[in-house]
């Protein structure tokens, strides 16, 4: 009996090797290891709070001297104006910015990326401790905490969930379906009818787009999340779903069967998802993520959903996604014409 179990086990291992499942076992831990290294590059980098102060603003001397005195804990970055500070905040070059509070001009307003985050709590606590040490009274330097990203935790994580949905359909579901049609020779059967290759490709592209858009709409309905700029948001979702559906169709053409499609899908899914979704927590990932098409979707989604962004300010992102989608569509067409792995 044991012998049979071993024979079957070795057969299963051979299949896993043949259909490239083994690559996932190597790839996933390796990828997570690299990502973790990028997040926690050095201890000092994560511990030190970088506070932006506006050059023309008149800060209490005790405040600036206290920050300078706590050099191991905090670091001042002087910004030209508030807009410059917002830019640095988005790029994760600073953790927060102090400026004059509009309601109580004698006190300060702290601007952070996300209000409900451990990082924000750490900043507020640090300032409270500094003030207590410097003035010996109850902390009141910071009157309000404003965040760049509007909404609660649920809304703030929404762009990540949407990116997950888009990539899941684009990189896992769609390539598997195309590989299945190739594996079972169904695509070849369809090509024995007068349909044009482009018609089949457009149908698959539309399938991907419908699945993505339906999933996103369902998510919004269930969570009752309403985008501020609905038309801008929908336009971006359409362009994004076009790009990642075309990407998925192309991946499907690179695979002979469903098992290969699954493996290749995961290999593309994780590197597209994690750097973009985790770019909020790492300066290094923020620098790497823009090279990925997923970031060109994630970043505008975040801007529209959390920062009241407008499509007009995201021309580069949507043109990039559209052109990439077109390129992938054309590559799929070439592979189909050559009956690649069919």
């Amino acid at each position: 009996m044991m012998r049979n179990i071993l024979v079957l086990l070795f057969n299963d291992l051979a299949i896993a090797f043949k259909n490239k499942t083994f690559f996932l076992i190597l790839f996933i831990p390796l990828f997570i290891f690299v990502s973790l290294n990028l997040i926690d590059g050095s201890k000092a980098e994560t511990d030190k709070i970088k506070i932006g102060l506006v050059q023309d603003e008149a800060y209490a001397p005790k405040l600036t001297s206290s920050i300078k005195a706590a050099g191991k804990l905090m670091e001042i970055t002087w910004v030209k104006n508030e807009a410059d500070g917002v830019r640095l905040l988005k790029e994760h070059k600073i953790d927060g910015m102090l400026s004059k509070d509009e309601k109580v001009p004698s006190r300060l307003a702290l601007l952070v990326l996300k209000r409900e985050s451990l990082h924000t709590i750490a900043i507020v606590q640090s300032f409270s401790a500094l003030q207590k040490a410097a003035e010996g009274r109850d902390p009141d330097w910071i009157a309000t905490v404003n965040s760049l990203h509007e909404g609660g935790i649920q809304r703030q994580t929404l762009p990540t969930w949407i990116l997950m949905l888009v990539l899941l359909i684009g990189f896992i579901i769609l390539p598997a379906q195309i590989a299945e049609e190739k594996e079972k020779k169904l695509l070849l059967a369809l090509l024995q009818t007068p349909i044009h290759e482009v018609q089949w490709l457009i149908a698959k592209l539309l399938l991907g787009m419908i699945l993505i858009i339906s999933a996103i709409l369902l998510l919004h309905l269930l969570g009752q999340f309403g985008p501020v700029n609905f038309l801008d948001y929908m336009a971006f979702i359409v362009v994004g779903s076009f790009c990642f559906s075309a990407y998925g169709v192309c991946l499907g053409f690179l695979c002979r069967n469903q098992a290969s499609a699954r493996t290749l899908g995961v290999i593309f899914y994780l590197p597209h998802l994690l750097p973009s979704a985790m770019s909020d927590v790492s300066e290094k990932l923020t620098a790497i993520a823009p090279f990925l098409p997923s970031y060109q979707l994630y970043q505008p989604l975040q801007a529209i959903l959390l920062e009241d962004g407008k499509l007009a300010n995201m021309s580069f992102d949507w043109i990039y996604l559209f052109l990439l989608g077109l390129l992938m569509f054309y590559l799929s067409y070439l592979l189909m014409k050559k009956r690649w792995l069919m």
Partner: peptide, 20 residues
Amino acid sequence: NRAAIVRKVGFIPEDPNLFD
């Protein structure tokens, strides 16, 4: 010229390729 030829050729593979 595949579009013009498909109606002239019917191919039946060894393993039936139908939507199961």
